[in-house]
Lab assay of single mutants.
Amino acid sequence: VCKIPGCTKRYTDPSSLRKHVKTVH
């Protein structure tokens, strides 16, 4: 789960989560 408040994205792959946080937030 993305830890950013208001963001409901969920990832099973830690690298995908990291990429999401870097690119989306």
Results as ranks from 00 to 15, higher is better:
residue 1 V to G: 02
residue 1 V to F: 05
residue 1 V to S: 04
residue 2 C to N: 05
residue 2 C to I: 04
residue 2 C to D: 11
residue 2 C to Y: 06
residue 2 C to V: 03
residue 2 C to E: 04
residue 3 K to V: 09
residue 3 K to M: 04
residue 3 K to H: 06
residue 3 K to D: 14
residue 3 K to P: 07
residue 4 I to Y: 13
residue 4 I to H: 10
residue 4 I to R: 00
residue 4 I to S: 07
residue 4 I to K: 00
residue 4 I to G: 03
residue 4 I to N: 10
residue 5 P to N: 08
residue 5 P to S: 11
residue 5 P to G: 11
residue 5 P to L: 02
residue 5 P to D: 09
residue 5 P to A: 09
residue 5 P to K: 08
residue 5 P to T: 10
residue 6 G to C: 00
residue 6 G to L: 00
residue 6 G to Q: 01
residue 7 C to Y: 01
residue 7 C to R: 00
residue 7 C to Q: 02
residue 7 C to L: 00
residue 7 C to M: 02
residue 7 C to K: 02
residue 8 T to A: 11
residue 8 T to F: 08
residue 8 T to V: 06
residue 8 T to D: 13
residue 9 K to R: 06
residue 9 K to M: 13
residue 9 K to C: 06
residue 9 K to A: 13
residue 9 K to G: 08
residue 9 K to H: 11
residue 10 R to I: 11
residue 10 R to K: 12
residue 10 R to A: 14
residue 11 Y to I: 08
residue 11 Y to H: 10
residue 11 Y to R: 03
residue 11 Y to C: 14
residue 12 T to P: 13
residue 12 T to Y: 02
residue 13 D to P: 01
residue 13 D to Q: 03
residue 13 D to W: 01
residue 14 P to Q: 09
residue 14 P to S: 11
residue 14 P to Y: 09
residue 14 P to D: 14
residue 15 S to G: 10
residue 15 S to E: 15
residue 15 S to Y: 03
residue 15 S to D: 14
residue 15 S to Q: 06
residue 16 S to T: 08
residue 16 S to I: 06
residue 16 S to R: 07
residue 16 S to L: 14
residue 16 S to A: 14
residue 17 L to K: 03
residue 17 L to M: 11
residue 17 L to A: 06
residue 17 L to F: 04
residue 17 L to N: 05
residue 17 L to C: 03
residue 17 L to W: 02
residue 17 L to S: 06
residue 17 L to I: 05
residue 18 R to V: 15
residue 18 R to E: 15
residue 19 K to W: 10
residue 19 K to M: 14
residue 19 K to T: 14
residue 19 K to H: 15
residue 20 H to N: 04
residue 20 H to S: 02
residue 20 H to V: 02
residue 20 H to Q: 05
residue 20 H to L: 00
residue 21 V to E: 15
residue 21 V to A: 06
residue 21 V to I: 04
residue 21 V to S: 04
residue 21 V to N: 06
residue 21 V to R: 02
residue 21 V to Y: 02
residue 22 K to W: 12
residue 22 K to H: 06
residue 22 K to C: 11
residue 22 K to I: 07
residue 22 K to T: 15
residue 22 K to Q: 15
residue 22 K to Y: 14
residue 22 K to E: 15
residue 23 T to H: 12
residue 23 T to P: 03
residue 24 V to Y: 07
residue 24 V to D: 15
residue 24 V to I: 08
residue 24 V to H: 11
residue 25 H to Q: 04
residue 25 H to V: 01
residue 25 H to N: 02
residue 25 H to W: 01
